[in-house]
Amino acid sequence: MHNYDFKTYIKADFGINFKNKKMNFLFFLRNKKFRLLYIFRLSSKLQRSEKKNIFFKTIRKILATYYNSLQHDFCCELPQATEIGKGLNLPHPYGIIINHNTVIGDNCTILHFVTFGNNVNKGNDNLPVIGNNVVFGAGAKIIGPCNIGNNVKIGANAVVVTDIKDNCIAAGVPAKILK
Rank of each mutant, 00 (worst) to 15 (best):
I130T: 09
V129N: 08
G105C: 09
P128C: 07
P174R: 04
G87I: 04
C108A: 15
L36H: 08
N133V: 02
K176Y: 00
S69P: 05
A156P: 00
K21T: 08
L42T: 04
N124H: 11
H2G: 06
A158K: 07
K32L: 09
L78Y: 10
Q47I: 00
N107K: 06
G131W: 03
K165M: 09
V160R: 02
F40R: 07
V134S: 08
L37Y: 10
E83Y: 13
L70N: 10
P93S: 11
R48Q: 07
F56W: 11
G117W: 01
K141L: 04
M23H: 02
I39G: 00
K33H: 11
I148K: 00
D166G: 01
G123N: 10
F27M: 08
F116Y: 13
F40N: 13
F34L: 10
K21Y: 10
T58W: 06
A81K: 11
A158N: 04
G149I: 01
R60I: 06
H92L: 05
N151L: 10
A140W: 04
L29W: 06
N68K: 15
T58F: 15
P79Y: 08
A138R: 05
F116M: 07
K122E: 08
K19S: 13
L78N: 12
N31Q: 09
R60Q: 15
F113S: 14
V134E: 06
N147A: 11
K153D: 05
I59N: 10
P93E: 12
V161C: 01
G149R: 08
N99W: 04
F116Q: 07
N3L: 00
N157H: 13
M1L: 04
L70G: 11
F28L: 12
A12P: 11
D106L: 12
D5E: 12
Q80N: 13
K22E: 12
N121T: 11
N151M: 08
N99D: 13
T115Y: 02
V103G: 03
L36T: 07
